[in-house]
Computed example of a mutant assay.
Amino acid sequence: MKIAFYGSSLLSSYWNGAATYYRGLLRDLAGRGYDITFYEPDAFDRQQHRDIDPPEWARSVVYPATEEGLRSVLSEARGADIVVKANGVGVFDTDLLEGIVDHSRDDALRIFWDVDAAATLDEMRADESHVVRRMLPSLDMVLTYGGGPPVVDAYEGFGARRCVPIYNALDPTTHFPVESDSLFASDLAFLGNRLPDREARVEEFFLRPAAALPERSFLIGGNGWETKQMPDNVRHLGHVYTHQHNAFNCTPLAVLNVARDSMAHIGFSPATRVFEAAGAAACLITDAWEGIEQFLTPDEEVLVARDGQDVADHMRSLTPERARSIGKAALARVLAEHTYTHRGAEVDALFREHARSQRSAA
């Protein structure tokens, strides 16, 4: 089956945290026999900050972020059996979602793949004319990369025919334990872009512990933090490329995950970083959110913090031996239950189930 996937970027993680999610899932689906084309706009300097070259397992089409470029790629939707529009492309999001419906075949499987479901649902509640609300009757399925029962109930309450969470996971071919790198030497490291709905939580869970532990070293990677006032014991790296993530996770005593406001509120939304850190056998400290036990066991495979004081307390008591034990247990758990092979099998089953139902109806 042919998949036409319209997303933010497959080639670059620059201001694009979903890149490793797309890569892991689509590479697995390609291995299952799917013929995939990924369409991404040349926007936001992503092409100047590529992490990977166009892969062998998918055809990569980078189109100009213009009306003409949009029309050229939407015209190819008719050749696909499965047409996907991911949220957060950043340009032409409304036109792309309307376009995959208008340009795909009547028998194609049409999917909206939401990699920020909690935020999208908030927008939909506030705007009856929101494009996703308008297009749900014309879509066969909504897939999300998190959210659990609350997101499923909300989407189906808005009229989605079906909503299924396909969670983030580990691609063990790209994220795995490596030797430490002095560039990332620190006691606690955090990787994430500076976003309005994350900044206050970073202040609480990262900067507050840094201020409380002036004798310890802290490291922050990601875009946008260069103008943020921070304690003297915090070092800022800027953008960290995907190929550097393993060393970033393996070098510090511990790494920190901080959910965005919407994801923390709704729960069941482990970020890609959670599985990348576990895949590198890092000792992960995460802010508390409902459903963490579905992915990692607190105090055995992950340390959970309710606030910045908890983070500071964890750091005061954490020894290198315990950090290694937690990281080793996390790696074993995600390899057993949370790889993109597991997620790809879920998606493949959904696609094949839909194809069978289409044949039966015909």
Rank of each mutant, 00 (worst) to 15 (best):
D287P: 08
A280P: 07
R161F: 03
N249R: 01
F275G: 01
L10E: 06
A345R: 14
H245W: 13
F44W: 10
V142H: 15
H103M: 06
P41H: 09
G224R: 05
A247P: 01
L350D: 02
I111R: 04
G291A: 10
E203T: 10
A211D: 08
S104P: 04
E337G: 09
I82Y: 08
H265N: 11
L335P: 00
V302S: 00
C250V: 10
D122Y: 08
T339G: 07
L219W: 04
D181F: 13
S9A: 00
E290D: 09
F38N: 01
G69K: 06
V178M: 07
E276V: 11
L350K: 10
D42V: 12
E156W: 10
T144D: 08
H239M: 13
S357K: 12
L256P: 04
T251N: 09
A336P: 06
S317Y: 13
A277P: 02
E56F: 10
P320Y: 13
T319Y: 12
Y21K: 11
G17K: 06
S180W: 10
R194M: 09
H103L: 05
P64N: 10
A211M: 07
P137K: 10
N223A: 13
L29T: 11
Y63N: 02
C163K: 15
S325I: 13
V132N: 06
L136A: 08
D153S: 06
F5P: 03
E156D: 03
D127Q: 06
D106M: 09
V347I: 13
V302D: 01
N168Q: 15
D81N: 15
L70D: 01
V347Y: 07
R352K: 15
L96R: 06
A361G: 00
D299E: 09
V62Y: 05
A126F: 06
I82L: 05
L70G: 00
F176L: 09
T319P: 00
V234L: 01
R198Y: 13
E203D: 08
V258G: 08
S182R: 05
D307K: 14
A278T: 05
T251P: 07
Q294N: 11
G157R: 05
D116Q: 12
Q244M: 05
L26M: 07
I292C: 12
P41N: 02
D140N: 11
A30M: 03
T120G: 02
T120E: 11
Y167I: 02
P41R: 02
D140P: 02
H265P: 01
H354R: 15
S9E: 01
S217H: 14
P54R: 05
R235H: 07
R59D: 06
L331A: 05
F92A: 03
L136D: 07
S129T: 12
G33Y: 10
G327L: 03
D107I: 12
F248T: 08
V304C: 04
M230Y: 07
E215A: 07
E179M: 04
E346F: 01
E199S: 06
P172D: 00
R316W: 03
F275I: 02
D35C: 03
E76K: 13
Y6F: 15
E203C: 04
